[in-house]
């Protein structure tokens, strides 16, 4: 198989890798680069566990070819905390309000929720629910997920 050479920036760090043209971005960042914080739940874009930002756009990294990341910026959960001890307000509120149970959907939800709050700092409950409709969670029933996003949004608006 001919391999493609890709240069990309992930969480501000430069990476270079070789990949097969058909390989997905989630496959390369997890299995090639060892950034396993991004989860893969379905490989068909139906669960949102692999959500990342690609040049500022929220996408499922299972539906992006790794070669498409060439020259682009990728943001994953590993880059969300702002420094060593400084969790993002979303991360902190999810912890404090029990917005996660098993935690497998959590990285994807946090990435998606941050993208929402960057566009809309004061979303309604309904807006949060529809924005996160692409992120399946089987544990929480969504209640505490939504409340965690609401609390983080309020905190971020006040700061």
């Amino acid at each position: 198989m001919p391999k493609a050479h890709v240069s990309t920036t992930i969480n501000g760090d430069e990476y270079e890798f070789l990949c097969e043209p058909g390989q997905t971005l989630v496959d390369v960042i997890r299995n090639g680069l060892g950034l396993t914080g991004t989860k893969e739940g379905c490989s068909t874009g139906d669960c949102g566990a692999c959500s990342v930002m690609l040049d500022g756009e929220l996408v499922c990294s299972c539906l992006v070819l790794a070669v498409e990341a060439d020259g682009k910026n990728v943001d994953t959960i590993e880059g969300m905390a702002e420094g060593e001890d400084e969790l993002h307000p979303l991360q902190r509120n999810f912890l404090e309000l029990n917005g996660l149970q098993c935690g497998i959907c959590t990285p994807g939800i946090l990435i998606a929720a941050r993208a929402l709050l960057e566009r809309n700092p004061d979303p309604t409950e309904t807006e949060i629910r529809f924005w996160l409709a692409g992120n399946l969670c089987r544990c929480t029933g969504y209640d505490k997920v939504i409340r965690s996003v609401q609390a983080a949004a309020e905190e971020m608006r006040e700061s």
Partner: peptide, 9 residues
């Protein structure tokens, strides 16, 4: 057409 993530593409 799918989720926000899907519509991003």
């Amino acid at each position: 057409i799918g989720s926000i993530q899907v519509k991003g593409r």
